[in-house]
């Protein structure tokens, strides 16, 4: 069996619940380009917002340095318009681009342009990691695999999971719930577990009954936790195998799911490739939107 040396970079978990938590985090990587100034020669604040069905990420970049001036993450509120209204009151920016499922509504409330998450991820991935051509995003409700042209930064091809929550981050939450664990505990168990059993379904309903029957037949919790990860891994590998090329090197893993260390490790082993998790992987949609805003400056 091949043993791969995996380098995993996971830095800085962010508090999920705040609506506004201004933080002077610096840009995750050194900017690779120089950004334009505003017409008066003054750097412009570029905002990017990624509205998912579960969480919102918002960033403000400095157009000159691409330093992150401000960022926050919050759960998506049921009253999204009101939530967006608050953002409009508390922040100011020169130009804003919205992405994610709520992008259309965000445009109505906040103005600016819209791009899809797929374009946003392509933009940020290529900006911060120009040598990587394969990206996987494991989000709360969907999963995307992207193939990017390394020289042009253009999206070559993308794949998404089928319509249900099978194959997404939501799956872990549900499974942790049926084992009576928190998400962190589930991940910790999985890292301890070994591959002794299989869960065949990523349909949350079926998988739950599989998990319960494994529990009652006395299988170790850690092994069940591992099997849960393996079930989702199969989905990720099948999505990735549709976009990966023979000369692809490292894989960039972004989205909230990239914070799951067990998943990152299993993915690297399964693909026999380095899997790179950047700081703040769940902000890549918002970064991409903000970087895209440069085009409008």
């Amino acid at each position: 069996m091949l043993i791969t040396i995996i380098s995993i970079v996971i830095i800085d978990f962010i508090n999920l619940t705040l609506l506004s938590r201004p933080a002077n985090n610096s840009s995750p990587h050194k900017p690779t380009d120089h950004f334009p100034f505003g017409s008066a020669g003054v750097p412009i604040k570029l905002a990017g917002i990624d509205i998912g069905s579960r969480s919102i990420e918002f960033v403000i970049l400095d157009s000159e340095t691409t330093e992150i001036i401000d960022r926050f993450q919050a759960e998506t509120s049921i009253d999204l318009s009101k939530q967006l209204g608050l953002i409009r009151e508390r922040y100011d920016w020169g130009h804003l681009v919205s992405t994610g499922y709520g992008r259309q509504l965000a445009q109505k409330v906040l103005g600016g342009d819209v791009i899809t998450e797929i374009k946003a991820y392509t933009t940020s991935a290529h900006h911060f990691h120009p040598t990587i051509d394969t990206v996987i995003d494991l989000g709360g409700q969907d999963t995307k695999a992207l193939s990017i042209n390394r020289s042009s930064g253009q999206l070559h091809k993308f794949e998404m999971n089928d319509k249900c929550s099978a194959g997404t981050g939501k799956f872990f939450e549900m499974m942790a719930g049926s084992l009576g664990l928190s998400l962190d505990e589930l991940v910790a168990e999985a890292l301890r577990g070994s591959k002794s059993v299989e869960i065949n379904s990523t349909c949350t309903v079926f998988a739950e009954s599989e998990v319960i029957s494994l529990l009652t037949s006395g299988v170790a919790l850690a092994d069940i936790a591992r099997a849960i990860h393996e079930a989702l891994l199969t989905k990720l590998v099948s999505l990735l195998s549709r976009v990966i090329r023979s000369d692809s090197g490292e894989i960039l893993f972004v989205g909230g799911g990239a914070k799951n260390r067990a998943m990152v490790q299993l993915l690297a082993e399964a693909l026999n490739r380095q899997v790179i998790v950047p700081p703040h992987p769940d902000f890549y949609g918002a970064y991409g939107a903000a970087i895209h805003a440069i085009k409008s400056v």
Binding site: Y101, I118, F158, M160, K163
Partner: peptide, 24 residues
Amino acid sequence: VVTDFSQQDLGQLKTRIAAALEMN
């Protein structure tokens, strides 16, 4: 695009189609 006659995948289809049209 794999789909059926229900409306439940509209959001995801919209993203896919928009993303494919954003390319090139």
